[in-house]
Write a protein that binds this DNA or RNA. Structure first.
Lengths: 142, 142
DNA sequence: GTATACTGTAATTATATTTATAACAGATAC
DNA sequence: GTATCTGTTATAAATATAATTACAGTATAC
């Protein structure tokens, strides 16, 4: 799976944790453990989908624009990583004179799509606030 | 996802389609669209797990050693690609002085594991014979 | 209006992963 | 013994991913 999903979830959880304060891409990048430009790219998708509000210029940054109780990981997955279950490599070849070789790519494609849907029904149940709660539980274990 | 899963499923479906005839790695590789050495590597895993029987030497090759009605894609996924849902890249850093940064990697790890389990309950229902049937249906559409 | 501090985005470089290929030992059939 | 196969490792090539650089655009403070 694409790690932009991880970056998006981490960023949203961080913003939810900081309640309504804004955060710069540098601050988020440091917390996530990546480069600010990468955070800006991922959060730019979230902004276009309305999950965060961004403010350019001095004193700018990112703030949460959604209710963490309402937003599921499935929505975030759709924005950042849909289709990433399926490997880019495909078996078979349409030109071969064999029923298996000709059709395996299509069949596997369907299987990967259905598998992804199953995974997404799970992610639908998980909200950003649940992830934050899991972080709290994990922290209390240490 | 790792494409060894695709190669394994394709090979098993091909062997099931050819009933009890054996096939060489070169024949399978040509059908799958990869290198014989890669087929040998993947089928070597399947042999160790008892799904195929191999015969070395002249006239050798691979034959199915399982009932296609009984073997699910979940079993094959376990052998070839377990854990491949989770991206190798992890966010956060245990050393940071922030609850989110410290625990996000563990939390995401758990989420990816659960997501993978959901996907696997779907793959459990799909047998090798179902995949062969899907190939037949797909072929009849053309 | 100019300096400063941000985001947005594209281009480039570096790194990691994946796939293909080569090579050869070991096994079996003839 | 020779030809044909698998098993396995090592290496090279291709691809995908992540980091970095660069700079235009925008808002703020002075």
């Amino acid at each position: 799976m694409n790690s932009e999903f991880t970056i998006a979830v981490h960023s949203l959880v961080l913003l939810a944790y900081r309640s309504d304060r804004s955060a710069t891409s540098e601050y988020i990048a440091d917390n996530v453990g990546t480069h600010p430009a990468r955070v800006r790219k991922v959060l730019s998708f979230l902004r276009k989908a309305g999950y965060v509000v961004t403010k350019e210029g001095s004193g700018g940054g990112y703030t949460l624009a959604c209710d963490p109780d309402e937003v599921s990981l499935a929505e975030i997955y759709c924005i950042t990583s849909i289709g990433s279950i399926k490997p880019s490599w495909c078996s078979g070849d349409e030109e071969e004179d064999c029923m298996i070789a000709c059709n395996m790519a299509d069949v596997m494609d369907g299987i990967f799509s259905e598998a992804e849907e199953r995974m997404m029904t799970y992610l639908e149940q998980l909200k950003i606030s649940d992830v934050l709660e899991r972080v709290r539980v994990q922290a209390s274990k240490k």
